[in-house]
Amino acid sequence: MSIGELLSVYGEKYLQGLLTTWELTIFSFIGAMIIGVIITVFRVCPIKPLRLFGEFYVQIFRNIPGAALLILLVYALPELDLILSYHSCVLTATTLIPASFCSEYLMSGINAIGIGQIEAARSIGMTFPLMMRKIVIPQAVRFSILPMTNLLIATMLTTSLASQVPLSPTDLTGVVSYINTRSVGGVTSFLISAFFYCITAVVIGQLGNLLDKKVRILR
């Protein structure tokens, strides 16, 4: 089928797919940022078990393939009497993995701050949580806008995992499978999805650059 034919028959499906991909991306990324910050605080805090837990988390979720994690969530969790919907399984996988990368980027942001400011914060009587909140995290986040932009794009691409489970509406990649089980969409049906992924990624990249310029810390 040609692009025109595909769009006229499946246009609405593609649109739904795009919206689903966006939705998964946004929720995963927000979740990943929250978990990433918490894990990072664990990794630098004075309490050793928490530090170990943080390191452990990152080592696990940075190194596990998304598909493997999804399979575990779908097939292994029910063994523990914990049954999540397919949607939740996908969202969990696409949140936990980017969270580990988020923490890695924040850690390099923290390393860029320098011990001097940390000592200054301690010397004016800031407690650890206050120092994290007011001095460390705000700067680490600003140092890591560009890697976080890439992470957002990577998170979006990871949400294509959703195509591996039955979802309705399905995501951009799922739409392609849907079409190819019904008619012969071939490579063209992929190209349309790819185009939507690309457009979104380009917009994210541009916004990231703008944001980075705006909040960059003068040194």
């Binding site: 004075p46 701050i113 001097g116 400011q117 000592e119 200054a120 914060a121 301690r122 010397s123 004016i124 009587g125 800031m126 407690t127 001095i135 705000p138 700067q139 600003r142 810390i217 003068l218 040194r219």
Partner: peptide, 25 residues
């Protein structure tokens, strides 16, 4: 040795460093 009490006492003693260490952001 540590904790809130230490932070409180620290807040009462000023410290000026060789490399200024102002909060950059």
């Amino acid at each position: 040795d540590s904790g809130k009490e230490l932070a409180k006492l620290r807040s009462r003693i000023g410290m000026v460093f060789q490399s200024f260490n102002l909060f950059a952001h």
